[in-house]
Amino acid sequence: MMLTVATQSFAFEPSANPVAEAERAKMLIDPGFGRVFTDHMAIVRYSEGKGWHDARITARQPLAMDPAASVLHYAQEIFEGMKAYRRPNGGAALFRPEANARRFQASARRMAMVELPEEIFLDSIRALVRTDKAWIPDSEDGALYLRPFMFASEVFLGVKPAAEYLYIVMASSVGAYFKGAPSVSLWVTREYTRAAPGGTGAAKCGGNYATSLIAQAEAIRHGCDQVVFLDAVERRWVEELGGMNIFFVFDDGSMVTPPLTGTILPGITRDSILRLAADQGITVREAPYSIEQWQADATSGRLTEAFACGTAAVVTPIGSVRGAEGGFTIGGQSIGPLTQRIRESLVAIQRGTAPDPYGWVEEIA
């Protein structure tokens, strides 16, 4: 049987052992984040001379991989993170999927990988969500987290861009990324940096996250939820968290966020917030902001709020910051009024409880 969406046809191979409805319902009561996976996945192959081919929606299953697969030795791998949301009418919708498709292509270019055509990216997402829509939790923070990724599958040893790739999309039922706490605490790492000028900081590749893990472990050892990275040159300019962008809110109602200089990820949530803020009359500057200034402004009261943002965490208030030189708190260590306003505006558009004047939302099922 064929499942046809938009311009790309995916052969549909239904799972022979789907999770029973009653068992799925139990799993969706409190799915956590990144532990509950749906029945199916999308898969497309690429090889030189043949191009992109063998597009399928098939049962989620382990991959057979040769030990000489290029990705295992030379790390040509990229991924995206996005969500499908339950709509008030019972359907499902995506939020700015074209932006994810374009960022996926930009990551591929930086990693010397073949670019996946935008229409294949979008059709794979739509087809998988339509197939596994029942896995979207009905809870307030529930969503279907989508993980498109691509890696070099050519079997060879030698330092060169691969000639064969495997593109896959899997889906995970999720709840809130951070649960319980009114805000998160950050550890400022002085020893480790995330990315340097000319590096892969703007690409969404596994290597960036792998190098952040030791710094994140450092944060946990010091009793903090997340690590925040400084720039690799002067070690003083705030860049981003391990997987989230950051905004600073001041007592005059304005905001600052670090600029896109090639060393931080161009977040889609970040870009959406910039647009929402501008349309709400909030002045936002994309400008460097030092850790010393952050502490001084928080201590004086000039800085009243700070928040992290990303697809997984949405908009999360930052309550305290610690480092080897000491620490400081921000506001009341809970969500501030402007952070709350931005979060509510964004979530309402994503979930269809408010109008979408930007054309960001695509209803697909």
Rank of each mutant, 00 (worst) to 15 (best):
Q226W: 03
V227T: 07
F229S: 01
L230F: 00
D231A: 07
A232H: 08
E234T: 14
E234G: 10
W237A: 01
V238M: 12
G243T: 14
F247D: 10
F247M: 12
F247T: 12
F248R: 08
F250D: 06
D252K: 00
G253Y: 09
L260A: 02
T261L: 14
L265D: 00
I268K: 02
S272G: 05
S272T: 14
I273D: 11
I273C: 09
R275F: 07
R275C: 08
R275H: 12
G281Q: 12
G281C: 01
I282S: 07
R285Y: 07
R285A: 15
A287R: 15
A287V: 15
Y289S: 12
Y289C: 00
S290W: 11
S290G: 10
S290Y: 09
E292P: 11
Q293Y: 00
W294V: 15
A296G: 03
T299M: 10
R302G: 01
T304G: 06
E305S: 06
A306W: 10
A306R: 14
G310A: 11
G310R: 05
T311D: 02
T311E: 05
A312L: 03
V314H: 04
V314P: 05
V315F: 11
P317F: 04
I318F: 04
G319D: 11
S320E: 12
V321W: 05
V321P: 01
A324I: 14
E325K: 08
E325H: 13
G327D: 02
G327S: 10
S334Q: 15
S334H: 14
